[in-house]
Design a protein around this nucleic acid. Structure first.
Length: 894
RNA sequence: GCGCGGUUAGCUCAGUGGUAGAGCACAUCGUUCACACCGAUGGGGUCACUGGUUCGAACCCAGUACCGCGCACCA
């Protein structure tokens, strides 16, 4: 046994134990095991990402669940991996290339560029994985997966082909969300609506058949005016009844466009007349379809104006063009008003610029197994925690829109579709490439390319990253596209831990994919974590610089400290306000635990054997409390109440074990104490601590493993993390009545000690200065506990003397063990004691009045449950007795 | 506009009908030794507001205010 330094130093300990666990293959899952399975798949982080606090929370929770499941004797698979993160990764590499080499991806060409991305992935892909290891995550790293592994890619292609054959995947020209920076289509989920300070421009269009007469129109986007092909009014709007069917003059490029009637137009808003730009607005597109309007695209893919017919604006960026267009209208005398206007604009999730609604040729998916997936959650086959997310899920499932799955990127799974070269040219010229326009012989959809590739051209698009992620729970377990022992043992997974922000992106889609491709739900429970905010309540973000680096935090406070601190502030269901002080508390807690063990070590050898003989009430009490803790944790884990679990663990060690138990038994460990007393105390310490370390282990794996080994609770070739939780109670050998009696005594002693310390403080007696206490009317068992009481209260001695007649003014406290006097020869301050007693009398009198009022209420006595009333009566009796005694004492002072 | 959360001590949060809690922070005291990453003691709350139900409400119901988050084609 080596020396233990005064303060716990986590760094070395944590890395050593992590290495030891890996060496011992503690994390590896065995599909052939007979134990019941427990499995989690990690929400795969972006392969080139770095750890942030959200990851820490998420993965610490998963680790806690996995470690607890191992202790419960289950065969655990926690399957890790990373996501290729199409747009994010490609954008990173492109930026790097531009900055360092001044080249774009098109300069390199597809193949060369992809090589560079793979290089980047090899170089940076391990970072977040290593950070998860630093955190202590017990993932089965031998099974680490990547969404672009060959086998995984096969699954993605196979799924695409299956869904295509089923008729659920189709290609078509549709209005999609276009990102002018990433130059790709996005799904609806990748668009974030943000409030914007905009301008609402009111302008007027002249009626063709009535020069000098105008129709007033409000718009926020004058720069798309060149694409207007109609003006719409509501058919029920009396103001415009006479305008329907007539034509107005579009100012530039000049054209005559019709006034159409459409229910969609809001009579109340703006002027009640809406300019229709079918190429650049989703609603306008639909109106255009209804009225057979021409679609004029006036924007380039990168957001610049594409309108040679209007040279003043052609080539300008869309926002620049907005001001210019307004100025032009003004110059023509057509701009009536510009007012400030708050509206919401869709932004690209990744590129942080407003998206552009745009007509383009894309691949879409009509979701499979929608009913099964919706029912699974509604019926509780899959449980959501907190439960309220079910509603969010149900709402989305009821309003499913087809998913735009193609992306105009290079990094990702390329669409497994080939077109016959000559046919493709023909269709391109005709600007039409709906799958419906292709005959069977012109298109090849398959995991493998067509036999004679030369005559074919592959679709250039790749799939949305989530189109691979949605297969994650089974594509990581099965052979490509098939069965495997792992899949049979561990699918469906037990728990999924993720953020509610990806309930649509990922969770809902996984459920549908699970039913369609793996024959059932992908998981049984989904635990949605809180979102971590800063102390101002703002979301953590790189740009705000309010996101602390978890690795720094781990260096400062240890991985265990970070984990524990975070768990203590993680409420169920609402947001977390992150405060570094909480992490500091986690570190302090680890140190407290370490020092409790250090104290035990300094007390010397002994203990070990199960505690039986010579038990004190404090011994019994702490063992009973440990049993209670163990039971509570079973319940709390069942309810996924992680914050409360950490709270209970904290309270047990700090308040119960250290502040009460350890202080109470310190006397037994002194050299003057008997061997028997010492042995009993050491064995109780060991019995309680060894179990406590096990209970704490999922939250603080490193320090518990370390201490368990150092204290000899686990052998040299044993791991705490793999040890099963014991079933037997520590108190199995004691009769219930004995336990109850001992606990009552212990409780009384602890409470009395508090009162006496209080008394000392009131009289400014230094806490560590020993004084003499004299007890009158002592509980009959007090003699046996008086040494403990003396120790806890900082007393020189506790005397039991019913005949004791305290000098006038001696402070006396009424305690659960009797009336305790603190004779302070020469220090008595009668006035101070009077004041103290008066204050207490007032307080107790208030309680008595309150209680009497309650019991005097016929309704209370008549209607409240009998036990509640009885409880109240007892309480009143106690208060009254106490009050009487206090008054007597006060009178005694004169 | 619809929906979902939240509002309890200076701060972060517990508290599902029966004496308002914890940690931190604060104040006073204390380093003859497990731990100053510590110990002892103490001060501090109209449980957002208004009504209702109940013998009794932080808790249940209705409404209001403020904060946050989703969803929605008001240009």
């Amino acid at each position: 046994m080596s020396e233990m330094p005064k303060a716990y130093e986590p760094r070395e300990v944590e890395s050593q134990w992590y290495a030891a666990w890996l060496d011992g293959k503690c994390f590896e899952a065995d599909p052939s095991s007979q134990r019941p399975a427990y499995s989690i798949v990690i929400p795969p982080p972006n392969v080139t990402g770095i750890l942030h606090l959200g990851h820490v929370l998420n993965n610490a929770l998963q680790d806690i669940l996995a470690r607890r499941a191992r202790q419960e004797g289950r065969e655990v698979l926690w399957l890790p991996g990373t996501d290729h993160a199409g747009i994010a990764t490609q954008a990173k590499v492109e930026r790097e290339l531009r900055e360092k080499e001044g080249v774009g991806r098109r300069d390199l060409g597809r193949e060369a560029f992809l090589e560079r991305v793979w290089e980047w992935k090899e170089k940076h892909g391990g970072i977040i994985i290593n950070q998860l290891k630093r955190l202590g995550c017990s993932c089965d790293w031998s099974r680490e997966r990547f969404t672009m592994d060959p086998e995984y890619s096969d699954w993605v292609a196979k799924v695409f082909v299956d869904l295509f054959k089923e008729g659920l995947i189709y290609r078509g020209k549709r209005m999609v969300n276009w990102c002018p920076v990433s130059l790709t289509a996005l799904s609806d989920e990748e668009v974030i609506m943000k409030p914007q300070k905009s301008k609402l421009y009111t302008m007027k269009y002249e009626l063709v058949d009535a020069p000098g007469e105008f129709l007033r129109i409000a718009t926020t986007r004058p720069e798309t005016l060149m694409g207007d092909t109609a003006v719409a009014v509501n058919p029920r709007d009396p103001r415009y009844a006479g305008f329907i069917g007539r034509k107005v003059r579009r100012p530039f490029p000049e054209a005559e466009i019709p006034v159409v009637a459409d229910e969609h137009v809001d009579i109340e808003f703006g002027t009640g007349a809406l300019k229709i730009t079918p190429a650049h607005d989703k609603a306008d597109f639909e109106i255009g379809m209804r009225h057979g309007l021409e679609i004029i695209d006036v924007l380039h893919p990168d957001g610049r104006v594409n309108c040679p017919g209007c040279p003043e604006l052609d080539g300008l960026d869309r926002f620049e063009a907005r001001g210019k267009a307004a100025a032009m209208l003004d110059a023509m005398g057509l701009l009536i008003e510009v007012e400030d206007y708050d509206n919401k604009v869709g932004f690209s999730e990744r590129a942080h610029v407003p998206i552009e609604p745009r007509i383009s040729m894309q691949w879409f998916l009509r979701y499979p197994c929608v009913d099964e997936a919706a029912r699974a959650v509604a019926d509780g086959d899959i449980t959501f925690r907190p439960d309220r997310w079910r509603k969010t899920y149900a709402h989305w499932m009821e309003n499913l829109q087809d998913w735009c799955i193609s992306r105009q990127l290079w990094w990702g799974h390329q669409i497994p579709v080939w077109y016959r070269r000559d046919k493709l040219e023909e269709l391109k010229a005709a600007e039409s490439l709906d799958t419906s326009d292709l005959e069977a012989g012109d298109i090849h959809v398959g995991v493998e390319p067509p036999e004679d590739e030369s005559g074919w051209v592959r679709d250039e698009d790749v799939m949305d990253t989530w189109f691979s992620s949605w297969l994650w729970p089974f594509a990581t377990m099965g052979d490509s596209g098939g069965d495997s022992p792992t899949l049979r043992k561990f699918y469906p997974t037990t728990d999924l831990v993720t953020g509610p922000d990806i309930i649509f992106f990922w969770v809902a889609r996984m459920i549908m994919a699970g039913y369609r491709f793996a024959g059932g739900p992908p998981f049984r429970n989904v635990f949605f974590t809180s979102i971590i905010r800063d102390l101002q309540g703002r979301k953590m973000s790189k740009s705000l610089g309010n996101s602390p680096d978890p690795v720094d935090l781990m260096e400062k406070y240890g991985a265990d400290g970070l984990r524990f601190g975070l768990m203590r502030i993680a409420p169920v269901g609402s947001d977390i306000r992150f405060d570094e002080h909480q992490i500091e508390e986690g570190r302090n807690f680890a140190n407290k635990l370490y020092n409790a063990c250090r104290f035990r070590r300094m007390a010397g050898e002994g203990g070990g054997a199960a505690p039986v003989a010579g038990l004190r009430s404090s011994h019994v009490d702490i063992m009973a409390k440990l049993d209670e803790l163990a039971d509570d944790l079973v319940r709390l884990y069942g309810e996924y109440r992680f914050g409360e679990i950490s709270q209970r663990l904290y309270e047990f060690l700090w308040s119960e074990f250290c502040d009460k138990f350890l202080e109470a038994v310190k006397g037994d460990l002194r050299d003057s104490a008997s061997e028997a007393a010492k042995a009993a105390t050491l064995s109780v310490f060991d019995a309680v601590m060894s179990r406590y370390l096990q209970l704490l282990h999922p939250y603080m794996p490193h320090v518990t493993e370390e201490l368990s080994r150092r204290m000899g609770y686990t052998g040299d070739d044993e791991f705490l993390m793999l040890k099963q939780l014991p079933e037997a109670s520590l108190l199995a050998n004691l009769a219930e009545v004995e336990v109850a009696a001992a606990r009552e005594r212990a409780g009384a002693v602890y409470e009395t000690a508090g009162r006496l310390r209080n008394l000392k403080a009131e009289y400014n007696v230094a806490a560590r200065r020993d004084v003499r206490f004299v007890v009158r009317g002592a509980a009959e068992w007090l003699d046996a506990e008086s040494d403990v009481l003396a120790l806890l209260a900082g007393a020189d001695s506790i005397e039991l003397d019913d005949a004791f007649d305290p000098p006038t003014g001696t402070p006396v406290s009424l305690t659960p063990v009797g009336e305790v006097a603190m004779p302070l020869e020469g220090l008595i301050d009668v006035e101070a004691e009077k004041a103290r007693l008066s204050k207490e009398v007032d307080k107790i009198a208030g309680e008595v009045a309150k209680s009497e009022g309650k019991l005097g209420n016929a309704n209370f006595v008549g209607r409240a449950p009998a036990e509640v009333v009885e409880q109240e009566r007892e309480r009143l009796e106690e208060w009254r007795a106490k009050l009487a005694q206090l008054r007597e004492m006060l009178e005694g002072l004169g």
